[in-house]
Design a binder for these strands. Structure first.
Length: 472
RNA sequence: GUCCCCAUCGACUAGUGGUUAGGUCACGGGCCUUUCAAGCCCGUAGCAGGGGUUCAAAUCCCCUUGGGGACACCA
C-alpha cells in the first residue's frame, strides 16, 4: 500500500520552525517512499483563526519548496482539505458515536466545569470532568448551541499504542476524562476532526510533534469507536531554545517568515531543520534536497529533543551563500538593497559586489552594510583624515592617478604589478601603502584586496575617489 | 500535583555488547595573508549517578537524579 502522510497545521499564527520541521519530515518521508503528501488545514478553532496566518503558512511552504500533492489549491479526491468545510462529516460521525453508545450529549455549563475542575484539583486521580451527563441520556443535535458531545472513555483498563520510534506507550483509562468531540459552536475538537480525516483521507503514518503523545490514548479510543485500525504513529522530538525549554518567541525568531526576512536561504533552512532530529547516519551535513529525499528514513529520526543553534545555522547559511549560483544569490539580495534605497541598476557592478560581500556574512541582512562603501560617497573621521593628508599617502594617490591614466584596461595581474611597483618606487612598508589606499578607496583600513576593489569600482571610479582626497 | 516521554563533548549528532567513543558548529592554537573575511591544519571537550546481567556494557534491565511535554468547548 502506498504511503500517505499529512501536515495538518492550524492557521493561528506565523509558521513556527517546529511545525515546519514536522512538515519537512512528512514531506521527505512521502517523497522517499514515493507516497503522497497532504496539506490539511485544521481551522476548527474559530476564535484563533487568522487568514493572514493561513497565507503565511502556504507562502512559507512554497518558499521552502515544499509542495503538496493534495490540499488547498491543489485539490485531491479526499477533499475538502479545510476542516471548516467538513462539519457535516464530523457531525455524521459524532452522531454515529452517540448512537453506538461511545459518546453522549452534555449540557454542563462552562461555569460548572470550572467549579468541577477546581474541586478536583489536588485529588490523586483527577480527570478534568466528573462525567455528570454521561448516563443522563440527553438527546440533542451536534448543532445545539447549549450542548457539547463528549466521548465516553472506559472507566477501567488500559489503552496503548505502538509508537514507531518509541515502542509501546500505554495509559490508564481511569486517568482519561470524557473529552469533548463536538464543541457547542458545532465545530469538532482536534481529536475528532483529526481521527475522522486521517481515516477518510487514508493516512498511513501520523508524524507529528511529541506534545501529542499524551493525547494519543484518546485518539486510539476514537479509532476503536469508529471501528477502525489506527495508522502508524511517529512522534517527533520537539525543538528547544538554548535554555532547553520549548522554543518560543522569547528565544528570538521562531517563524520561518522572520528567517526569510533576515536573509536566510530556503535551501539552508530546509537542510538545517531536516538535520534537527534526523540524521542520514553518516557524516554528511550539507545535502541537496534530492540527497535528503534519497536517504530519509524514519529509523534516522532521533527520540531526543534538540536545541535550535543559531550559530550553526549562521555557519550553514554562510556556506550556502558562498556556494550557490551567483545570479541566484544576487536575486535574493535585491530586496535588501531596495529597502535600503540603494541604486543597483549597474547589474555587472552589482554582481561583482555580491560576489565579494557574500563570503563575509552569515545572512543577507548584512549584505548592505558590507557592500555599502562601494555605493556611497565615503566620509572620514579626523583620525582617518589625518592619515589621508599625510605626505606618504598623498604620494601614493598621486602616483596611482598618474599610472592609471596611462591606459584604460587593467587586469588583476596589472593591478598586482602596480601595487608591487608602488611599494618599491615609493619605498614604503606594506602597511604604509595598503592602509591609506584602502581607506581612500573603501573607507576602511580593513576590507577587500586591492584588486577586488579595483575590479568592482573600475578605473574611473578609483581615480575619482583618489582625486577627491588629493591636496592640490 | 498526576500521567507520559527523554538522557553521548557547551550545541547538532554517529554509535545497537568488544571502537584509541567518530563527524559538524562553537571555542583555543597555527598556517596562508598588507588588513578583515574566507580557506586549510591541529587541539580542548562527552557516555548524568548508582546498582545489576555478561568473559565484556555508551549499548540490555532496574532505581535515583535531571530535563522536557501533556493535563481546555486550543491545536
Amino acid at each position: 500500500m502506498s504511503v500517505r502522510v499529512r501536515f495538518a497545521p492550524s492557521p493561528t499564527g506565523s509558521p513556527h520552525v517546529g511545525n515546519i520541521r514536522t512538515a519537512i519530515f512528512n514531506w521527505l518521508f512521502a517523497r522517499n517512499m514515493g507516497g503522497t503528501f497532504i496539506l490539511r488545514i485544521e481551522d476548527t478553532d474559530r476564535e484563533r483563526y487568522s487568514k493572514e496566518a493561513l497565507q503565511a503558512l502556504m507562502d512559507g511552504l512554497k518558499w521552502l519548496n515544499i509542495s503538496w500533492d493534495e490540499g488547498p489549491g491543489t485539490g485531491g479526491e479526499y477533499g475538502p482539505y479545510f476542516q471548516s468545510e467538513r462539519l457535516h462529516i464530523y457531525h455524521e460521525y459524532a452522531k454515529m458515536l452517540v448512537d453506538k453508545g461511545y459518546a453522549y450529549y452534555c449540557s454542563c455549563t462552562p461555569e460548572r466545569l470550572k467549579e468541577v475542575r477546581e474541586s478536583l484539583k489536588g485529588k490523586e486521580k483527577a480527570a478534568g470532568y466528573d462525567r455528570h451527563c454521561r448516563d443522563l441520556g440527553i438527546k440533542g443535535d451536534p448543532n445545539d448551541p447549549d450542548k457539547v458531545i463528549r466521548f465516553k472513555v472506559p472507566l477501567e483498563g488500559k489503552t496503548y499504542f505502538e509508537d514507531y520510534i518509541r515502542g509501546r506507550i500505554e495509559f490508564d483509562n481511569e486517568l482519561l476524562d470524557d473529552f469533548v468531540i463536538i464543541k457547542s459552536d458545532g465545530y469538532p475538537t482536534y481529536h475528532l476532526a483529526n481521527i475522522v480525516d486521517d481515516y477518510l483521507m487514508k493516512v498511513t503514518h501520523i508524524m507529528r510533534g511529541d506534545e501529542w503523545i499524551s493525547s494519543t490514548g484518546r485518539h486510539i479510543l476514537l479509532y476503536e469507536g469508529l471501528g477502525q485500525k489506527p495508522p502508524v504513529f511517529v512522534h517527533l522530538p520537539i525543538i528547544l531554545g538554548p535554555d532547553k525549554s520549548k522554543l518560543s518567541k522569547r528565544h528570538g525568531a521562531t517563524s520561518i517568515i522572520e528567517y526569510e526576512g533576515m536573509g536566510y536561504l530556503p535551501e539552508c533552512l530546509f537542510n538545517f531543520l531536516a538535520l534537527l532530529g534526523w540524521s542520514p547516519k553518516d557524516d554528511r551535513e550539507i545535502m541537496t534536497i534530492d540527497e535528503m529525499v534519497e536517504s530519509f528514513s524514519i529509523d534516522g529520526i532521533n527520540q531526543v529533543a534538540s536545541v535550535f543553534d543559531h550559530k550553526k545555522l549562521d555557519w550553514m547559511n554562510g556556506l550556502y551563500l558562498r556556494s550557490l549560483d551567483l545570479e541566484y544569490i544576487a536575486e535574493k539580495a535585491k530586496p535588501f538593497f531596495e529597502n535600503a534605497g540603494i541604486d543597483i541598476d549597474d547589474n555587472e557592478k552589482y554582481k561583482r559586489i555580491i560576489d565579494f560581500a557574500r563570503n563575509r556574512i552569515p545572512n543577507l541582512s548584512g549584505i548592505v552594510s558590507e557592500s555599502e562603501p562601494f555605493f556611497r560617497r565615503l566620509s572620514f573621521n579626523s583620525e582617518e583624515k589625518a592619515l589621508i593628508d599625510e605626505n606618504k599617502s598623498q604620494r601614493i594617490y598621486a602616483y596611482w592617478v598618474e599610472e592609471l591614466s596611462k591606459k584604460a584596461q587593467w587586469s588583476e595581474e596589472d593591478i598586482n604589478d602596480l601595487v608591487k611597483r608602488s611599494i618599491q618606487e615609493l619605498e614604503l612598508k606594506g602597511k604604509e601603502f595598503y592602509f591609506p589606499l584602502r581607506l581612500a578607496l573603501f573607507g576602511s583600513f580593513h576590507g577587500p584586496d586591492i584588486p577586488v576593489i579595483f575590479n568592482i569600482l573600475g578605473r574611473d571610479q578609483v581615480v575619482a575617489r583618489l582625486q577627491r582626497l588629493m591636496k592640490s
